[in-house]
Design a protein around this nucleic acid. Structure first.
Length: 126
RNA sequence: CAAGUAAAUCGCCUUAUCGCUAUUCUAUUUAUAGAGUGGAGGAAAGUCCGGACACCGUAGUGCAACAUAGUGGUUAAUGGCCACCAGUCGUGAGAUUAGGAAAAGUGCAACAGAAAGUAUGUACAGGUAAUGCUGUAGUGAAACCAGGUAAACUCUAUGUGGUGCAAUGCCAUGUAUACCAAUGCUUGAGGGCGGCACGCUCGAUUGUUGGAGGGUGGGCAGCUAAAGUGUAUUAGUAAUAAUACAUUCAGAUAAAUGAUAAGGGCUUUUUCUUUUUAGAAAAAGUACAGGAUUCGGCUUAUAGAUUUACUUAAAUA
């Protein structure tokens, strides 16, 4: 698996997103929160991931874009460390709950702890 | 030189690694790989004006509402822009304007003054049967057939149909012409028509409104070659227009243009060297801000840098 984050890996379907927020479980590592749900996709992709930043916390579009880019980048570079062994299909949504612009280093660290928590929670369940 | 005024321009760069998006070519396992080429702004912002484009029935009359307000020009169009005149501010270069009408009406008016209008006081003079009946003095910008004020109502002139690409057209998927309540069928419910009235018009075999509920919530077109951009010449004081040549320059949709590392610019501060110009080192900073149908303006935000034209009374050198 390469360090890519292309079109097919992005979570786009409105139905799944709605379902994700109503039925999904979550783990958090402040200021990040991961909402996830076991679903089935039509494509052969195992995981689809989206990224979201509240308009309330970041008024300017420039800042929102910046945070989303950082989150995507951290996910792209670190997903193989955590998600290679997953067999069933998942929908992910990563939320940024903070109010200040973070540095990349910080985001990367938090994403790693976030996925560690996630794998722990899921292995316990199954 | 310094301090200013106006106009215009730019607004970080390079390399490496890992990525994103559109598209072209090649290969095949037909959705993946490889290679190539595009990929945010001067304001993309606010959504304040005006157009293009699309639909609503080519959209009537009156009232209301809103906008504009010297003269001329410019444009697809404007409430924008340009030129000139006038007022105000500044030594000046320039800046700025709320620049139509007070003999249509209503309202308002500091200080002074008896009084600023349904008022007539005081002193003196004149006059009468009698009386602020007449004149002068006094206050004030203004004292009665008079003025001021329209960033007060108002009047006048001119203009404005509405809704916005979530418009609109098509394809796919899927369902409920079911249930409950109210009301109506030519003696007309309700809609079209924007705020009201008139007027016009559609209208019931599946009517209309409300309740509760079911389904979709995907894709394609619209969607980027245009009042386009650059250069030059000509006309014009200018806004702008015409001609010639060159050029193709984002199309995403939980929404692409990024991340990391290294180096270099630029600015400021401190320290050191030097007669000065300047040089070296360290630290900090490097703005405002992200397309969403599109174009022309306006408004607001913006670290820092550059260019051109012009001004300077007083003070200082």
């Amino acid at each position: 698996m390469k360090n890519t984050y292309g079109k097919t890996e992005k979570l786009k379907s409105k139905i799944i997103i709605e379902k994700l927020f109503t039925e999904g479980k979550s783990v958090s590592a402040y200021p990040l929160r991961l909402v996830y749900l076991k679903t089935t996709f039509e494509d052969s992709i195992t995981i689809q991931t989206g990224v979201s930043v509240s308009k309330r916390n970041f008024k300017l579009a420039v800042d929102r874009n910046r945070v989303k880019r950082l989150l995507r980048e951290a996910y792209r570079l670190n997903k193989n460390n955590h998600l290679n062994n997953i067999t069933s299909q998942y929908a992910f949504m990563i939320l940024y709950l903070g109010k200040e612009l973070p540095s990349y280093e910080f985001v990367e660290k938090k994403v790693n702890t976030l996925f560690e928590k996630f794998t722990k929670a899921e292995t316990k369940n199954s």
